[in-house]
Design a protein around this nucleic acid. Structure first.
Length: 409
DNA sequence: TTTCCACCGGAAAATGAGGTCC
DNA sequence: GGACCTCATTTTCCGGTGGAAA
């Protein structure tokens, strides 16, 4: 579509349409993951139970540690944060001060960063790096003991921490309730992985698992009611058609009852409807939203890949363009090695190359299989594409270095 | 049944850049 | 300024793999 006055003209038309076009959203933010609603449908039981557990802390008594598990999008984080926020609010309105720390271990990334986040939540200054984890934890412990304030620590996606760094930090936290230390620390561990408990040291398991909570997936009917509950706050009255809500519930219901997926679909469907000037959010917008989310994910993933992963992808594209459906990974490696030498100045080892192929497979871009060709051929990795070559190529073209390779070939 | 191929992949070590502490 | 720390990435080492061929 040609625009007058170049970029300025494009922006004028976009902004004018936003001002003139029909209004779809009232408050879009309630459809984002980080929004914590005032009430959580179908989770009243969990809210009440967690409230009872947290209330001991408010009475300055030691509370049982808690382990929460359930699949993604079942409300674990929302319930915990809702009750935690209420606890903090209550403690501020009364004389009973409570310290609370919520840390997402996957977002934090490393054991050091989790320890540093704990320390910062009790108002300690901790550098980004340079100290031993034990040192940071020791400073945190000294501060907590000196303050004598009850503390609630919520470690979300705790499996990401334990699977990579072991359970030393968890052990240290659960040991803080030792009778010789006169402080009350409640540890709440949240995990998507039920088997996570198998990796824990029995001492940590017996302490962390004093109480357990399981969050079951939402049924499609429950999901529909949750969406209906958010719609009056999120959208202008009468904008969202029932067919769109039913479809969002059905799609997310088929993916283990993930409420986050349902909210994403509804939000993106609303954005698409708004963009084309529609006065309603319809089922067709939900279908488009699903495609849009999948496509955007691929483009974003490829765009954010490091240079050598992009070079491996180009090598795979070029090797596969010979017409074969699948190729041996070593054929891709020789092509990659030539690109890497010319455009990156060095070539990664085959071991690292296998790692990159595996990562691209996990990301859903390459299809990696291990096949056996017997005594002559041995056991090799063969590679195909998981998504159309043109999609990969167009995402890769955005990179200056990689675009140059395409132009030079 | 054994041998052999051509990698595969786990574990540990190395690297280099960021930092703190004394 | 030197010892020591984290962290992400990469390399090195070496035992493992599984099915066709011998």
């Amino acid at each position: 579509m040609p625009y007058k006055n170049g970029t300025n003209g494009i922006l004028d038309e976009i902004f004018d349409q936003a001002l003139r076009g029909p209004r779809i959203f009232r408050n879009k933010s309630v459809l984002f993951h980080d929004h914590i609603p005032q009430r959580l449908l179908f989770r009243e039981e969990q809210v009440i139970r967690l409230g009872h557990l947290f209330s001991s802390i408010l009475r300055n008594q030691r509370s049982s540690n808690l382990f929460i598990y359930g699949k993604p999008g079942t409300g674990k984080t929302a319930v915990t944060r809702l009750v935690l926020n209420k606890l903090i609010e209550k403690s501020m309105n009364t004389q009973q001060r409570v310290r609370a720390s919520y840390i997402n271990c996957r977002m934090a990334g490393t054991e050091y960063r989790v320890a540093a986040a704990l320390a910062r939540d009790v108002d300690l200054k901790v550098p980004f790096t340079g100290l031993a984890v034990k040192e940071v934890f020791e400073r945190f412990k000294i501060k907590v003991i000196s303050e004598k304030l009850p503390l609630v620590v919520v470690l979300d996606e705790v499996d990401a921490l334990v699977s990579r760094y072991g359970d030393d930090l968890l052990y240290g936290l659960t040991r803080m309730n030792d009778r010789t230390l006169t402080i009350d620390v409640m540890v709440v561990g949240i995990s998507n992985d039920v088997r996570f408990k198998e990796y824990l040291d029995p001492r940590v398991l017996s302490s962390l698992g004093e109480e357990e909570m399981v969050f079951k997936p939402y049924t499609p009917e429950e999901m529909e009611k949750i969406l209906m509950d958010r719609i009056p706050e999120a959208f202008v009255d009468g904008v969202v058609l029932y067919e769109a809500v039913a479809l969002c519930s059905a799609i997310s219901g088929s993916e283990h009852g993930d409420a986050r997926k349902a909210l994403d679909l509804l939000r993106v469907a609303g954005e698409l409807a708004e963009r084309i000037g529609s006065i309603h959010v319809e089922a067709r917008h939900v279908h488009e939203a699903q495609e849009h989310i999948d496509q955007n994910r691929v483009v974003e993933v490829i765009r954010s890949l490091p240079l050598h992963s992009k070079l491996v992808l180009i090598a795979a594209l070029q090797t596969l363009s010979t017409g074969l459906g699948r190729v041996k990974s070593m054929h891709i490696y020789s092509k990659y090695a030539a690109f890497a030498k010319d455009f990156a100045g060095r070539t990664l080892s085959t071991r690292r190359f296998y790692g990159l192929i595996k990562e691209l497979n996990v990301l859903g871009i390459l299809d990696r299989r291990i096949e056996n060709f017997g005594r002559r051929g041995g056991r090799v990795t063969t590679v195909g594409l998981s998504i159309p070559a043109r999609e990969i190529r167009s995402a890769l073209m955005e990179d200056a270095v990689v675009g140059e390779i395409f132009q030079s070939k």
